[in-house]
């Protein structure tokens, strides 16, 4: 009898201690922590409905030569299924009017169509290779797509906290889960207070640093969205691309049919 009481007492005392211990250590798991950080980033980054912006892309070669391209980018959030994006090119003149429609899905492969005004035709493009350069820049299609945070597409791991340009950051490593990525891993600096991405280091399949993306000149828009006015991608080779975003508009009433294949020709 006495032994039963002792056993019950032990359980009664030990159980809360055990519960407290597991509760305390649950948040220290770097994988969970990493995922939570990015879930917060995704949450803060969503809810914008639709957005439009004008983007100037400046390509700077190591030799000093520069090339400029101008495009408009319109994006529509789709509940539980990523986003729709149309990129239409204004410059250079030989591709003026060319437009690319992308359906970015959360879990499935992306779909893409292109309209070539010189031929007045639209054709779907296979999701073949996102690792190629976007318009000759240091950004690849994979890089641009991943700026829209799609949680299921990566595995995450919290690394450390660190200050970046005076901003306290949480540094998270993310590893692509989708096939044919150009990267073995990426290391991301997330602003702790605003839950926005400030910097990304891209490591190639041989785990060698290939390039670094820096997002700067953030502004907060009425829809509580933080957007960087400048994105600078610098390759270890010395070539760089600067994306300058202007004239952001949110919730301007864009709808799904504005992002259809037939809408491309318009």
């Amino acid at each position: 009898m006495k032994s039963i009481r002792v056993a019950l007492l032990t359980v009664l005392v030990a159980w809360p201690a055990f519960l407290a211990a597991t509760t305390l250590t649950a948040g220290d798991d770097p994988v969970s922590q990493g995922r939570e950080i990015f879930a917060e980033v995704a949450a803060r980054n969503s809810g914008y409905g639709d957005q439009q912006a004008s983007v100037t892309m400046q390509l700077r070669r190591k030799s000093g030569a520069t090339t400029t391209r101008v495009m408009n980018i319109a994006t529509l959030e789709v509940a539980n299924d990523g986003a729709r994006t149309i990129v239409s090119f204004n410059n250079p003149l030989d591709v003026k009017g060319t437009a690319v429609l992308t359906y970015t899905h959360s879990a499935a492969d992306d779909e893409q169509w292109i309209y070539l005004p010189a031929f007045k035709r639209v054709k779907q493009i296979a999701d073949a290779n996102k690792t190629t350069s976007f318009m000759g820049s240091e950004f690849t299609y994979e890089d641009l797509n991943s700026l829209n945070i799609q949680l299921p597409k990566f595995d995450y791991r919290f690394l450390r906290t660190e200050e970046l340009d005076g901003a306290p950051c949480q540094v998270v490593e993310r590893v692509p889960r989708y096939a044919r990525s150009a990267y073995k891993r990426q290391v991301v600096w997330v602003d702790r207070e605003r839950s926005i991405v400030l910097k990304i280091e891209y490591y190639d399949t041989k785990d060698v640093l290939a390039k670094t993306l820096s997002l700067t000149k953030f502004r907060k828009y009425p829809s509580s969205q933080w957007r960087a006015d400048e994105m600078s991608m610098v390759s270890v080779s010395g070539d760089a691309t600067l994306l300058t975003w202007r004239d952001f508009k949110f919730k301007s009433g864009l709808a799904l049919n504005d992002f259809s294949v037939s809408a491309l020709k318009r």
Partner: peptide
């Protein structure tokens, strides 16, 4: 025309054709 050729190359680029880089420099 120049537009047609440039847009075909753009299509190639978009569909992942990096073999063009072996023959044509960015400018």
């Amino acid at each position: 025309s120049e537009q047609q050729l440039s847009q075909l190359l753009f299509l190639g680029e978009l569909s992942g054709n990096d073999d063009v880089d072996d023959f044509l420099v960015g400018d």
